[in-house]
Amino acid sequence: MQPLHGIRISAVLVLLATAAAAMAGALDSRPNDGSGYWPDFSNTGYANTPANAGGLDLGPYPGRLKDYAANMSATRPITARYPDNSVISYTRFLASKVIIYGDNLTFVGCLFEGKSPNDNLVQIYAPNSITFRYSTFKPNAYARPPGNDGTVSSAHVKPGTPFKKSWQLMTTMKEAVALMDHNDVWGNAGLLMVTGFPGRPSVWTNNYIHDAADTSHDVYHHDGIGPQSEGNGGPMVIDHNTIASLGNTNALALQGSGVYDHIAFTNNYISGYGYALSFGVKNNATNLAVTGNVFSAELHQLWGPLYGNLWGGTPRGSLWRNNFYQVRQGDDNKSYSPADHGRFWWPTDNKSHAQDFSG
C-alpha cells in the first residue's frame, strides 16, 4: 500500500480498527459490571495497587496498611511533613484533615479517611508537584458508599454520605500540579486542585470519582474534578476516568469566566451531576480536545451534558470528536431512550445524532 502523509494506509486502517474496537468496549461496559473496562472498585484504590505502580519498584499491596501514627482520630488533624522527593507507600491516614508539607511527593497505595464537613480532608502545601497513585479518599464511617452495592457506577438514590460524616474537598494550597492516577474518591463534594500551568499540566488518569456526599441538600456544590471558579486554567490531561454521581453541578467543573486553555478530556465515562461538563461561563475556551467520551444515561441528571453548550469551538483551536451517548432500558436519565444508544453526542445541543460532529 502507498504511504499516506508518511504513514502506510495499512497502519492507518489498523489504528482505526483499534479505535473502533475500544469505542465498542466503552459503549458496552459500565463501571462495576465485572468487565474492568472502566475505573471502578476492581481496579482503583489502595487494595488494587499492583507491583511497580508508577515505575517505582514497589511491591503490590501487602494486604494491610501501616498507620501514619498511633491513636489517630477522625476528629483531629494530622500534619505530615516529608523531605522533598519522598515516596510514601501503603500508609493509612485517619484525621479530620491531613495537612501535607513537602515538594514532589508521591503517595502510592495510601488511604486517607476521616470527616471534614465543609472543609478539606487533604490539604497540600507544595510549590511544584504532588502525585497520588492507587490511593483511596473516603469518609471513615463507611467501608463502601451508602447505596452503592458494587454493581453500579454510583448510588442511584440520595442522599449518599450524610453531611456530618462527609468530607468536602481535597485542595492544593500552593502551585503544586497534581498527578492523580487509579485513585478511588468518594463521600465528598469536589477536588479543588491546581489545573496546571504552561508546560506543567495537571494529569488525571484512570480515577474512580463517584458517590458525592449529601446529595439531598444544597450545602455542597457537587463537583467531580473542580470547582475551578476563576478561569485562566490549564493545561489539563483528563483521560479514562469514571466521573459519576448524583449532584448539582459538574463532573468537570471549570466554572470561571477566564480562558481555559489546552484541556484534553478524553475517553472518560460521565454520568449524573447537574451538567456533565463545564468549560467556563463564556464561549472563550481555547485548544480543547474532547474525544472518545461516553455520556451515560445511567444516573439521573438535572440539566444536560454541556453547560451552555460552551466549548470555544473549532475557530479557537478546539476539537470535538467520537463522543457517544450510552443508554439502556431503565436508565434514570429520562431525557434519553435506548434509541439514542451509540449515537453521537454534539456540543451544540442535547440531542443524539447519527453522524459525528464536524463543526
Rank of each mutant, 00 (worst) to 15 (best):
G150F: 12
G150S: 10
P146V: 07
W167L: 03
V152S: 06
I130L: 03
T161Y: 02
K164Q: 13
K165V: 05
Q168I: 00
F163P: 03
N148I: 02
E113Q: 14
V122T: 11
Y125S: 09
S166W: 07
R133Q: 12
K164M: 07
M170I: 15
T151K: 05
P127Q: 11
G114S: 13
G114V: 09
S116P: 10
K164I: 05
T171K: 14
K115R: 15
T151I: 01
P162W: 05
M170H: 04
G147Q: 01
W167D: 00
G150Q: 10
Y125I: 10
T151M: 00
N140D: 15
T161E: 02
R133H: 05
P145F: 06
F137A: 06
F163D: 08
V152Q: 06
S166A: 12
P159K: 04
G160K: 06
N148M: 03
P117I: 07
K115P: 02
G114K: 09
N140I: 11
G114M: 11
N140S: 15
K165L: 15
P162N: 09
I124K: 01
N120L: 07
F132I: 06
F163M: 12
I130G: 01
S135A: 10
G150W: 11
M170V: 15
P159R: 03
K165F: 10
K115I: 04
L121W: 02
T151Q: 02
A126D: 04
K115T: 08
V157F: 14
V157I: 12
F163V: 09
F132W: 15
K138H: 07
D149E: 11
Q123L: 13
R144D: 10
N148K: 00
G114P: 11
I130P: 00
S154T: 11
N140Q: 14
A141F: 10
P159T: 11
N120P: 03
Y142P: 00
G150M: 10
Y134V: 06
Y142G: 00
G147Y: 00
S129N: 13
F132N: 03
N118R: 13
A155K: 01
I130D: 00
N118Y: 08
A141T: 14
I124L: 04
T136I: 09
V157M: 11
W167A: 01
Y134W: 15
F132H: 07
S129Q: 13
F137T: 05
F137K: 04
K165R: 14
T171D: 12
D149S: 12
S129M: 06
N128I: 04
H156W: 08
V152F: 02
R144N: 13
K165E: 15
D119Y: 08
K115Y: 04
P117G: 05
T131D: 00
M170G: 14
F163S: 04
Y134P: 03
G147F: 02
P162G: 07
A126Y: 05
N140V: 14
N148S: 03
A141C: 07
E113R: 04
Y125C: 09
Y134F: 15
S154P: 06
Q123H: 10
A155T: 07
S154E: 05
S116G: 12
M170T: 13
E113N: 09
I130H: 01
Y142S: 01
V152N: 02
K165T: 12
D119Q: 12
I130V: 14
Q168E: 12
